[in-house]
Amino acid sequence: MSEFEPTIVAFFCNWCTFTAADLAGTSRLSYPPNIKIIRVMCTGMVDPQYIIKAFLEGADGVLVSGCHPGDCHYINGNYKARRRIKLLKEILPQFGFDSKRLRLTWIGASDGIRLAEIMRTLVSQIKELGPSQSKLSMVI
């Protein structure tokens, strides 16, 4: 049987983490292709709804990543994102979703190397958790 390849949906902020991902690419750093990046203008615009949708559609993990606290291009979007992630990390485990499947990180624009490292670690973590419960069963 082939190894389980997880799908991880990542919401990257345009100004920091997405730029870091670009940098990782231009620096020819490699990381697993399991991460599906969605570029957003700010982590503060990631409605909890997007994350729920990703999970219900069968994502094995969701990563939200933006600027370090204090560096937000829109001053405080990442602080708002942190509260929403906190909220989801309270709600989703109530329905059996492992809290480790949802991650929030701060990756600055110059952190290409760190980004690649985090992606590798995250993918191996999710592989260990196995497929999400929504992957195979019907979601109503």
């Binding site: 942190r82 906190k86 991650r103 990180t105 985090i118 995250l122």
Partner: peptide
């Protein structure tokens, strides 16, 4: 606040 939700 909520530092515990940040990081992997």
């Amino acid at each position: 606040e909520f530092q515990e939700v940040v990081g992997i």
